[in-house]
Design a protein around this nucleic acid. Structure first.
Lengths: 321, 321
DNA sequence: TTGTAAGCGTTATCAC
DNA sequence: GTGATAACGCTTACAA
């Protein structure tokens, strides 16, 4: 910047004003811009941030981006931030509470303007001077949470299965015991079944005790004992749905002819091809956009504590029609 | 930091030394550390970077992270960087040459210590003061390129298909006309077929002219005219392989009984479950690790211009055995 | 309207 | 070994 000032024959202050779009004499502006281009000058955002306390960077904290749902979140958050002239720092935690906490710590050293986090740590220490928006996990008011309408999605899944002719349906879920918004999927499903007076069952596997593969044993066991009498299954995630479909197919049970399956997430093959199964689609793009909006909203404490975005059903080959 | 110094009754310089592990009187160290903890003091990395010209941040430039191959790259690069105490800034380009260039520009404003990029822009302007490591695209010496052994992978695919009993094999590929390391997949495949004196054909669809779906027409056309005489297909990507499998299945052609298919990448369902097809697996973790290693190697100009990492074959249901 | 200078939080170079 | 003090590159009153 000093060089630019010298080359343009003006002072630092003038260059600064030009770079920030502050009105300045026309001829000065032209000279400065020419000099800046000539020297290929790039503003140093960190030095600037040192003064302004604005770094135009946001941290995204995720368990990982291996899983398509997470990578889609990251993709859309990154794009939404870029559109606003912000950059994204990515932190991966592997779902470890300790790592999650250390990320929040590290982030503070890095002077970001805010954090968007999908975390599991029950008592994550947030600092009140750093805007934080949570995905799928409700903290407290002052920390807005963005999630899809899990309850509505559960109801929708039941509704679809029953309308597609299922007589006895089931809800399969695995995952942590950590309470989260996703729990509401099951609640909505049960509710809808009850209100329709439909026959249903819930099978819940705790990931910490049983791996997803345990579902195979359960299914085989029930088939052998003749108690596998479902013709419709709602799985808590697409991943589980695809797994269950696989197991059933191996057992000679046809999907969707004998058993229809609906998953949750809206996972597509390679991120953009067909849905991997019939599913309740989370509005990931809107969720990401909403997170960014909330993060930048003037007064985080007067913001809705929970934003619930609408889901929709999508056919993906594991249901009839 | 000023507060810490005051609280500990020492000068700024002393606090700085403590924070940087520079030897200092025992009693002073203890006092400073206590004060720092008390005040929950966090070093400001940007102010530090202003002085040291080291920000402990690296930029990763990718087309997107929607596609499993890209998201896996991002995941491993991020982990490798974290392990070294670095943070990762993610930039998504959508494969647009202009956006790619503007990313490089923006990155310069952000004082990162280096860039890892998977780009398509033929004449991307790099600055020689910023270490750059390229993935899958060779620029020039001074800019190391990391890729998997595409040539060897092509040969391996041909070898596998032929050993598994195929009589006439084909190479299907789509994608840009932009030359890149991935082109060598086809070269290796042809080479191996020739050296084994095997019957083979190459069908290449340029993405800019035809979408992947165009392969459906080609296949249907050949089936109708009775010229679909392959019993083994090597596809340039897993995505294409899965698509081709789908088309064949719709046509009543059985995979792998009638036609065996091998893809390229090593894509797994949900990032960690089974392979989506039989495939040549790219060593993504090693690639990411290598990128980071190279980026931090003392003298980038004296580094190998191209690092080629070994691939391996993995069974994924679309081949026999 | 432009130039000057103080200061953002840190490190590094000195005398002490 | 410790404590002032001058940078680092930028913004922003304030003075010219």
């Amino acid at each position: 910047m000093k060089d630019v000032a010298q080359a343009a024959g003006v002072s630092l202050g003038t260059v600064s004003k030009v770079m920030n779009g502050i009105p300045v004499g026309e001829k000065y502006r032209v000279k400065v811009e020419a000099a800046a281009k000539e020297l290929n000058y790039q503003i140093n955002q960190y030095a600037r941030g040192l003064k302004t306390n604005q770094t135009f960077a946001v941290a995204l904290i995720l368990p990982g981006i291996n899983h398509p749902f997470f990578s889609e979140i990251a993709q859309h958050v990154c794009q939404a931030l870029t559109r606003r002239g912000y950059r994204m720092l990515l932190y991966l935690t592997g779902s470890s509470p300790e790592v999650e906490q250390s990320c929040v710590q590290m982030v503070r050293q890095n002077m970001v303007d805010g954090i968007i986090g999908l975390t599991y740590n029950r008592d994550l220490q947030l600092t009140d001077d750093m805007p934080f928006v949570s995905i799928d996990r409700h903290f407290s008011s002052g920390v807005p949470c963005v999630s899809s309408d899990n309850y509505g999605g559960g109801r929708l899944a039941a509704e679809k299965l029953l309308e597609l002719g299922c007589r006895k349906v089931a809800y399969f879920r695995n995952g942590t015991t950590q309470p989260g918004e996703a729990d509401k999927r099951g609640v909505g499903f049960e509710q809808e079944c009850r209100s329709r007076d439909a026959d249903f069952e819930v099978i819940w596997l705790n990931d910490e005790e049983y791996p997803m593969e345990e579902f195979r044993n359960i299914i085989i066991d029930r088939v052998n004992r003749g108690t596998f009498d479902f013709d419709g299954i709602f799985c808590s995630t697409d991943r589980l749905a695809v797994f269950v479909k696989r197991v059933l197919t191996e057992l000679g049970i046809r999907v969707p002819e004998d058993v229809q399956i609906i998953g949750f997430d809206g996972t597509r093959r390679f991120g953009e091809d067909a849905y991997v199964c019939s599913t309740i689609v989370q509005p990931v793009a809107t969720m990401a956009e909403t997170c960014v909006d909330l993060l930048f909203s003037k007064d985080l404490s007067r913001t809705p504590a929970l934003v619930c975005l609408p889901v929709e059903y999508a056919y993906g080959g594991t249901t009839k029609e």
